[in-house]
């Protein structure tokens, strides 16, 4: 069953994301974990990409505009066969091909260099526009952060996508309700993303961002072209899937203490058990 397959993919991505960050010893736990289910659905079903035809111009494109979610993307690309497991554990080490923010010139499978927030969504819009001009029948997926949407550039990109009717662009907003310094509502209230994106000319839905089924269904619906760009607001939890991290107030960038490590190690062990027989990479 597909949903079982995607749910397993999510567990795999979460497992390797945690192991990768454990190897480094610190990093962007919260915002990496909240996009795991979305990555599982995009790469597990919709993107139609693997290491073998990564240069096919008709491929689907994925841009992680919230670049600090890099560790989750790297775990996903490893699972898709872009590099071996030992590469995964070089995250942020000197001379690595996996810098904390994705770099198209360093990491196989990364389409666009992101990290300076707001720029990835513009680039993804450019990719979708370029593909539309070329008459290609593919989709561009872009995950933007809820905090990232503070950046005015995102809203410039949305205006462009809407004006040019980029129905081949599917934007997923990781609404985990927290940014670096705290709750988005306290720092700069985002108001209602569905209302805002709708007002900008997108077809917009809000779904449970921890449910692979809900995300999959939303993407399927988004592909019913109606001449509008598509937005899916993912109702997520920062640190999603690891209860201990979910409950930690300050989980954007963590330098775990002893107690934290105990909980993280336990989460890794539990995932390992659940994935017994699957982790045969």
């Amino acid at each position: 069953m597909l949903s079982t397959k995607l749910a397993t993919a999510a567990k795999q991505i979460r497992y390797y994301t945690l192991k990768e960050l454990r190897e480094l010893g610190f990093g962007h736990f919260g915002g990496s974990l909240s996009i795991v289910e979305a990555l599982a659905v995009i790469y597990g079903k919709h993107l139609n990409i693997d290491a073998q035809w990564a240069n096919d111009p008709n491929r689907g494109y994925f841009v992680l505009s919230k670049g600090h979610g890099g560790p989750a993307l790297y775990a996903t690309l490893f699972l898709k066969g872009f590099y071996s497991e030992d590469v995964l554990y070089t995250l942020n080490q000197n001379g690595t091909t996996l810098p904390s923010h994705p770099d198209r010139n360093l990491t196989p499978g990364v389409e666009m260099t992101c990290g300076s927030l707001g720029q990835g969504i513009s680039a993804a819009t450019g990719i979708a526009y370029g593909n539309k001009l070329a008459g290609r029948n593919n989709y561009t997926y872009c995950i933007v952060g809820d905090g990232e949407l503070n950046e005015g550039q995102c809203w410039e990109a949305f205006q462009f996508a809407s004006h040019h009717k980029l129905e081949n662009l599917i934007v997923l907003i990781d609404d985990n309700k927290k940014q670096l310094d705290g709750p988005t509502k306290e720092i700069i209230d985002p108001l209602d993303f569905v209302e805002k994106l709708t007002a900008f000319g997108f077809d917009t839905v809000k779904v449970d961002g921890s449910s692979v089924d809900a995300i999959d269904k939303a993407i399927e619906n988004a592909k019913e072209n109606n001449g509008k760009p598509q937005a899916i607001v993912l109702d997520t939890i920062k640190g999603q899937g690891v209860k201990y991290i979910e409950e930690k107030a300050d989980n954007h960038h963590m330098r775990p203490n002893e107690e934290d490590w105990k909980a993280i190690n336990q989460a890794i062990e539990e995932l390992e058990k659940e994935l017994e027989g699957v982790l045969t990479v």
Binding site: Y61, M112, A123, G130, A134, A157
Partner: peptide, 14 residues
Amino acid sequence: ANMMSLAAGLNVTG
């Protein structure tokens, strides 16, 4: 600002 990053995306597609 959007024009610069959008141009980058366009260049990714050739």
